[in-house]
Computed example of a mutant assay.
Amino acid sequence: MQVLQVQLEIRPDPAEVGRARRWARSRLAGSGIADDEPLAETLILLVSELVTNAVVHTGCPAVLRLCLPGTAEDAATVRLEVADASTRAPVPRCVDAAATGGRGLALVDGLADRWGWSPEGAGKRIWCELDRCDEPREAAAAAFAGGLKAYEGLAFEAV
């Protein structure tokens, strides 16, 4: 099985989130993952969440990395990583229903098959993985349907 690793440098600017999504979509298409495939939709949402967290919470440049299957025939795991210069650990927050933010890590936890973080140099790397399969994950389907989903005491609503 062939794996392609690509990366994009992110400036500490909120406009970078949209650029990161467009870049990730083009890389997915290049590895045979169609835009309308549930994996692509979920991965783009995860790119948005992790890049937004890096831009908003660190104020430092970051690096977005994707590890993609080399061909559409490769049934594989897709890995997304965001490395930044902050040593502050990512912590899921409990927020009330009126809050406009604070649900990103709960969303990552609910959509990814696995996620975590580790120190990297003077900063950290946050990663998540999605296993490529034919059926969308239950959490992803609920999130994209705009439903309210509770996860370990945290609630988020995809809008």
Rank of each mutant, 00 (worst) to 15 (best):
V91F: 01
D74C: 11
C60D: 12
A83L: 11
V78M: 03
G59A: 07
N53M: 06
T77V: 15
T52Q: 05
S86H: 12
V91Q: 15
L66G: 09
T71M: 03
T52F: 01
T52V: 00
R65C: 10
T77C: 12
P90S: 05
T52I: 04
T52G: 11
V78Y: 10
S48G: 14
A76P: 06
L45W: 08
V51F: 05
E73M: 02
A83F: 01
E41S: 07
A40C: 08
T87K: 13
E41H: 12
P69W: 00
T71R: 13
P90F: 12
A89C: 00
L50W: 00
A54Q: 03
A62R: 00
G59R: 00
S86M: 06
L45A: 14
L80A: 10
V63F: 00
R65G: 12
A40V: 01
V78H: 08
D84Y: 02
E81N: 08
T58W: 01
G59M: 04
P69D: 09
V55M: 08
A76T: 08
A83G: 06
A76F: 07
T42S: 15
L68C: 01
T42K: 04
L66N: 03
P61V: 02
D84P: 07
L64E: 06
P69R: 07
L68G: 07
L66P: 11
R79S: 15
V51D: 02
A89V: 15
L64S: 04
L50R: 02
V51K: 01
C67M: 13
A83D: 11
L46S: 01
L46A: 01
V82Y: 02
V78A: 13
P69I: 11
V47F: 09
A54W: 04
A72E: 14
L50S: 00
D74N: 14
T71G: 10
V55K: 10
L66F: 09
L68H: 08
E73A: 13
P61C: 04
I44T: 09
A72N: 07
V82H: 02
S48E: 15
D74F: 06
V55D: 00
L43D: 09
